[in-house]
């Protein structure tokens, strides 16, 4: 461990400090978050009390799930959550694919490819996400004849793909130049070099920011409620309209989003730790 540890901690120190900084930022986030949550709870309780709100928490569980004759029947909120997770997972895969292609184009020698990639990234990042969702639904989905579900998935992937592209590009550029030279001198082509040499080394660097993209996707997926996809947010709104339990339902919905995004962050932190230490890095 001594020699190997020294050698590699030297060469990988930017990555280590970045990972440590990311971890510290997450810890700070969590503390701030807890404080805000407490403050929010206080305000909500005070407000509800002032307006004489009639709390009806006992009516909430049926919107999660019920057990009838030993059989689990999913409620509207959990069904909505499943749609949200489906949209987020599919959008993540598409965003990673868009991001990879875009990053490789931006890194390529082709001026046309670079311009295309640059244009896409600037448009995706500098127009409102809601507008992108609407354009995908009313224009692109109409032209291509795709469902509203896929319009939602693709619009989210379009938006987050631009961020994924910059993360992938950053990861690729962080791999030392000598790795390219060694690969070329051995006769490896660009495709093999990316797949077998560059991307495997860039991946650990990209993992933490990519987790951020996934968390953003889960959160931003609520915007697809604008095109009437029955995701968690839409279901929440429907229930509130039916029952007037605005406080209970919206707080429950917020809690569900939080459970998902926080467990994603924790899972990635764990993954990162294990991946980082394997192979003596």
């Amino acid at each position: 461990m001594t020699k190997a540890g020294q050698g590699s901690s030297q060469s990988l120190s930017p990555r280590e400090t970045r990972a440590r900084r990311a971890r510290r930022a997450r810890a700070l986030d969590a503390a701030l978050f807890a404080a805000c949550l407490a403050a929010l709870a206080w305000i909500v309780l005070r407000g509800a009390q002032a307006m004489g709100y009639n709390w009806q928490w006992f009516r909430v569980p049926r919107y999660l799930w019920r057990i009838v004759d030993g059989e689990v029947i999913l409620g509207a909120l959990i069904k909505g959550l499943i749609v949200t997770l489906q949209i987020s997972a599919l959008a993540m895969l598409c965003a990673a694919a868009f991001g990879l292609v875009t990053a490789l184009l931006r890194l390529s020698r082709s001026p046309v490819g670079r311009a295309l990639a640059y244009g896409y990234i600037e448009i995706a990042r500098n127009t409102p996400l809601l507008l992108q969702v609407l354009v995908f639904y009313f224009i692109i989905a109409y032209i291509l004849g795709i469902s509203r579900f896929w319009a939602g998935v693709l619009s989210l992937a379009f938006y987050e793909g631009a961020f994924a592209a910059e993360i992938i590009r950053g990861g690729v550029l962080a791999v030392r130049k000598g790795q390219w030279e060694a690969a070329r001198s051995l006769g490896l082509g660009p495709f093999d070099t990316y797949r077998d040499v560059i991307l495997p080394q860039a991946l650990p660097l990209m993992l933490p920011p990519m987790a951020g993209v996934l968390v953003n996707l889960v959160k931003h997926s609520s915007i697809v409620s604008a095109i009437a996809i029955f995701d968690l947010t839409t279901e929440g709104r429907t229930i509130v309209a039916d029952t007037f339990m605005a406080f209970e339902i919206w707080l429950t919905v917020a809690g569900i989003y939080l459970v998902i995004t926080l467990s994603l962050s924790l899972a990635v932190a764990g993954l990162e730790r294990r991946y980082g230490f394997a192979r003596g890095h």
Partner: peptide, 9 residues
């Protein structure tokens, strides 16, 4: 190469 440039992964 001077810096070996082995593939570390």
């Amino acid at each position: 190469f001077q810096q070996f440039n082995l593939f570390p992964h």
